Simulated scan of single mutants.
Amino acid sequence: MITHEQLRVLDAVVGEGTFRAAAEKLHKTQPAVSHMIKQLETAAGVTLLSRDGYRPVLTPEGRAFHRQACIVLSQMRELRNLADRLAARQEPEVALSVSATCPMAPVLAVVGAVGRAYPQTHIKLATDVLGGAADRLMRGEADIIVAPDNSAPLDEVESIPFLELDIIPVARPGYGPERGTGPIENAAMRAFVQVVVAGTGRGAYDQTRDVLPDGLRWTVTDFAAKKEILLAGMGWGGMPEHMIRAELESGTLVRLDLAGYPVRHSRLMIMRRRDRRGGLVGQALWQALAGEDRMPEKT
């Protein structure tokens, strides 16, 4: 008999490329994964994976089988989600992780409204940097995240656009090399401290963005500390525009025209795992976050 778990294991081996990586993803031992694949091949009556090379490769029969298995797995996820919705009750806790670059006002407006509608549910709100939110989501420590696009595996998450923002390289006036008529090259910035915020994930989904190579660097744990260092004239770095709007207007911080660090347009998405869409309150929070048009046109 072919089981749902055997199909999950086959899909993991195909997706991850090795039995070992599939075992780590599924939190199983490698022998257990190998055994389940053998059981599946016995039940199917065909060899699904060739073990002749370093990595297992789908046989022609395996490719056809895996295509149908993916359809079955998708249908099973939908069936489980439907069952969860039909049996939905107000869950005791919903965990939300928000990128530290995200303006909090639109998030808090939604969380406040959902919290008032479901006062018995404890809403946990965390902020994370770089791959931290995706790490929480994939480990099951967050039900919904607001994070940069492509920060989580696209085949395993459902995502909806939330808002866009600009990450701008800034410093105190006079900090950095002499300004010319064109962009400042990387080599000219190496003698000046770049302040970066460390990712809060455990490494699997962390992304290194906008870090100049071979330069001086300080690492902090949050954007508030980073901003204080920049205002003190002790370094330069990228900041979300909404966090430094007043300082840019007053001139206490100025934009840097850097060849290696242009203004980055960041797109934040609402994400949840396809296999864990949540209960009554989680669904309400998801729908509320997705219910308003938060994608302003760039000017």
Rank of each mutant, 00 (worst) to 15 (best):
I2R: 15
L7T: 08
L7N: 06
G15A: 12
G17Y: 13
R20T: 14
A21H: 11
A22N: 11
A23N: 04
E24W: 12
E24H: 15
K25Q: 13
K28T: 07
T29C: 00
T29L: 02
L40K: 11
E41A: 08
E41S: 14
T42Q: 15
G45I: 10
V46S: 08
V46G: 05
T47L: 12
L48W: 14
L49R: 06
S50N: 13
D52R: 15
Y54P: 11
R55V: 12
R55I: 07
P56A: 12
T59F: 12
E61C: 02
G62T: 09
R63W: 11
R63P: 05
F65Y: 15
A69E: 09
I71R: 15
V72S: 07
V72E: 14
S74C: 05
S74L: 07
M76W: 15
M76N: 13
L82F: 15
L82D: 14
R85E: 14
R85Q: 14
R89T: 13
R89E: 14
E91V: 03
E91D: 05
E93G: 02
V94Q: 10
V98C: 06
V98N: 08
A100M: 02
P103S: 04
P103Y: 10
A105W: 13
A105P: 08
P106I: 05
A109P: 02
V111H: 08
A113R: 15
G115I: 03
G115R: 11
Y118C: 04
Y118V: 03
P119G: 09
P119K: 09
Q120S: 15
H122E: 11
L125Q: 11
T127D: 01
V129A: 12
V129N: 10
M138K: 11
R139S: 08
A142T: 05
I145Q: 01
A147I: 01
P148C: 04
D149N: 06
N150Q: 13
S151D: 03
E156W: 10
F162R: 06
L163F: 01
L163D: 00
L163P: 00
L163I: 01
I168R: 03
R172H: 08
P173L: 07
P177A: 05
P177G: 08
E178G: 05
P183V: 08
A187E: 12
M189I: 03
R190M: 07
F192K: 10
F192V: 04
F192T: 04
Q194Y: 01
V197D: 02
V197M: 07
G199R: 00
T200R: 06
G201Y: 00
A204I: 01
D210T: 03
D210N: 12
L212Y: 10
P213L: 00
P213H: 03
P213Y: 02
P213F: 02
R217A: 05
T219G: 02
T221N: 07
D222E: 04
D222A: 01
A225N: 09
L231P: 08
G235I: 00
W236D: 00
G237D: 06
M239E: 11
I244R: 08
L248V: 04
T252Q: 15
L256Q: 15
A259R: 11
Y261F: 12
Y261E: 13
P262R: 04
R264A: 09
H265P: 04
R267M: 07
R273D: 01
R276F: 11
R277F: 02
L280F: 07
V281G: 09
G282T: 13
Q283M: 12
A284F: 06
W286N: 05
W286G: 04
A288I: 04
G291C: 10
G291E: 11
D293V: 00
E297K: 14
K298L: 10
T299V: 10
